[in-house]
Design a protein around this nucleic acid. Sequence first.
DNA 1: ACGTAATCGAGACGGTACGTCGTGTCTTACA
DNA 2: TGTAAGACACGACGTACCGTCTCGATTACGT
Lengths: 189, 189, 189, 189
Amino acid sequence: MIQTKQPRNKEKILEATISVLNGTGYLCLTIEGIAAEAGVGKATIYRWWPTKSHLVLDAFLMVTESAFPFDLNDSIKNNFVEQLKNLADVFSTTLGRSMLAIIVEDKGISDAFYTSYLSLRRNDSAAFLRQAMEREGIEAEVNIDILLDMLFGPIYFRILIYKQTPDERFISELVDHVIAGILPACSGK
Amino acid sequence: MIQTKQPRNKEKILEATISVLNGTGYLCLTIEGIAAEAGVGKATIYRWWPTKSHLVLDAFLMVTESAFPFDLNDSIKNNFVEQLKNLADVFSTTLGRSMLAIIVEDKGISDAFYTSYLSLRRNDSAAFLRQAMEREGIEAEVNIDILLDMLFGPIYFRILIYKQTPDERFISELVDHVIAGILPACSGK
Amino acid sequence: MIQTKQPRNKEKILEATISVLNGTGYLCLTIEGIAAEAGVGKATIYRWWPTKSHLVLDAFLMVTESAFPFDLNDSIKNNFVEQLKNLADVFSTTLGRSMLAIIVEDKGISDAFYTSYLSLRRNDSAAFLRQAMEREGIEAEVNIDILLDMLFGPIYFRILIYKQTPDERFISELVDHVIAGILPACSGK
Amino acid sequence: MIQTKQPRNKEKILEATISVLNGTGYLCLTIEGIAAEAGVGKATIYRWWPTKSHLVLDAFLMVTESAFPFDLNDSIKNNFVEQLKNLADVFSTTLGRSMLAIIVEDKGISDAFYTSYLSLRRNDSAAFLRQAMEREGIEAEVNIDILLDMLFGPIYFRILIYKQTPDERFISELVDHVIAGILPACSGK
DNA sequence: ACGTAATCGAGACGGTACGTCGTGTCTTACA
DNA sequence: TGTAAGACACGACGTACCGTCTCGATTACGT
């Protein structure tokens, strides 16, 4: 089988990116440093990625499953707890935090991130939630988008602003609160 | 009255920072550019701010009320809708977005931001919520921290990741959902 | 008869060299540019020429007669005027100037240039001069090498340093002066 | 006396230029190398010189007397032998050869070189020659420009094309031949 | 009111990284 | 088989800012 050189090189560069990121952090991430670490010329990096941001995005996508599966036989709560734990894990790594920092300061990358990562998970989540609510007989008038924001938003918030990694207890309580809001209430407000 | 030059200079610099930020965006914000805009030597900037990040933080604090008042005579919902609208406004400006970008990528600044801005609002919010719930006879077993994250988190999330400015309708529904979760439910799950 | 591709290719490359040289000048002459212009891979150029300099030398030799004939039936003056006019023409083209620039900065090429071009003309000139002087009965004690330098040197000098192309009048006067020096003088100094 | 820092730096850079030139030759002369040798940032070099060529020109002018004096009490021959020996010396150094290589390939620099160096010597030479001829009663119809080219041209020619440094014997004969051409001849051409 | 400090603008400076270009070598795929 | 196309490591380019550092000129105060 013929093994072209090119893909091997791209992989080397992505691995070097992660390695440098883990070693020195995002603020010290330089193209020259990555090139040196990968044993590659700078031009080779620029051949495949227009900016450092795109490179980090690809590195992120390489190591991150873009979909985290739901289990229809399990409860809403358990499913979302798992989802949010996974989310918290992914974005608490140096790579994940760097990814977020780039997204926050660069609209172009955030679009690419949305397409390649966020919308996939979001769609899975929405689909699961709809099915599960129907199955559990919840007919509440709920805006699924807002529900998902109430689940995901606080995780991102804690990581981005408070620099904390939400633990299981936080996640569990959060999911409880959100679910409480969609169960039939005795009285209106 | 004698007016020393110093305070006037600091003000000029902060104003120049905002002006450059509005003109060219955070990614193009340079100390040299600010100094030129302010008609000031670079050293004068370094005299008072150790890094560009600290400078932006001060600029942000200068133009932003660090507390946004609650009205105890109004409803929980109305109060939080106002709070979140104000939050969305503040962080949808170029200055606000820049502030967030810095916070996300710099732990040191995020601490300072927490002290000077975030904790003040957070404490006010928590205090108000406790009073209001008591007044309205809600005794639900709720974790106030999580409740506040459910309110604020989605706003930051929308701004930071989705690059959207939440509108009043979104905010209103969000507050509704959160409040729904703390009203007494007919049945636990 | 079978016509191999190779000679055709070399020609294409030499022509492309001249074409690029005329288009953008020596300072912008690149192997990549020549390869593109010739519709040829870079490796094909490197197969036949070790450096850009050798390539330009070959291009120069291709378009330049390495010998310019003397006419024994004409006068010394007329012969040298023609020689110098031809010289001035050859080295006033972009190709000729480039050739000189390379010679000046590269000893290796200047040797090759000497062998393939300069010594041939020099020998012809010396032989002609000797014959003609004998024929015209001039027996002056002259160093022919120096005489030739006095003829050729000023032409190169004007072209290389002054960036001028000597005109016919200049050449004519120059030859007159040189010849005046070898005619029998009334008195030594 | 106040010694500003600036000129000291320029001098350091010019010295480093010469040092690198002597060490590795013109083809290996890089701005980065000069900056390193001088212990200076690249930007400092670019602040004062637009191109490497201008830098070499300045280095050349720094070490070269821009005028080499004539002695009106000495003979024409001796004066020009001294002039040409000096010329041959100056342009046989690495620095001198590099200067010439740059002049040959760059019209802009050759203009600057003409203004700062060449025209000064040329004018001195012409003035001296005129005075001396008058003093010695030579009234020949001579074109001084061509005479000077016959003196200087061969020197440059030998250095640039033949890569030789003309020795005293060559120079002496050359001057003899040129002078022979301006002495009254017995017969016209 | 004036001389003496302190303060400031201007910008030079040594660095670091940028993104680009051309080199000369090497690989691949096609003709 | 030979060759175009072009990937590749390398090295230098010229630029932009960084944070530090003089240097005068311009304050503003203490006498």
